[in-house]
């Protein structure tokens, strides 16, 4: 079976997604949405969006390259 390799561009995308994740859930932005009286499911929506973004990059072949 082929192992996945990560190109330079792939690494860039991984870093960007990680930073986005940290921005959403480990930054002052987190404090903001925690205080902003959003509906109860709001964190799940954010989480779902992050997952969707990762899925799209993986399906398009970035991040992991054969």
């Amino acid at each position: 079976m082929r192992e996945d390799r990560t190109s330079g561009r792939g690494r860039d995308i991984v870093v960007i997604l990680t930073l986005l994740g940290l921005a959403l859930f480990a930054s002052p932005f987190t404090d903001w949405w925690a205080r902003a009286s959003f509906p109860w499911y709001f964190p799940f929506v954010l989480w779902g969006l992050l997952i969707a973004l990762v899925a799209v990059t993986q399906i398009l072949g970035h991040g992991f390259e054969d």
């Binding site: 989480w47 990762v54 899925a55």
Partner: peptide
């Protein structure tokens, strides 16, 4: 069992947890 499965797990596993 399948080294290529890790790339799918990058988003499928967090989805499972969600």
């Amino acid at each position: 069992l399948n080294s290529g499965a890790l790339r799918h797990a990058a988003w499928m596993f967090p989805l499972f947890l969600l």
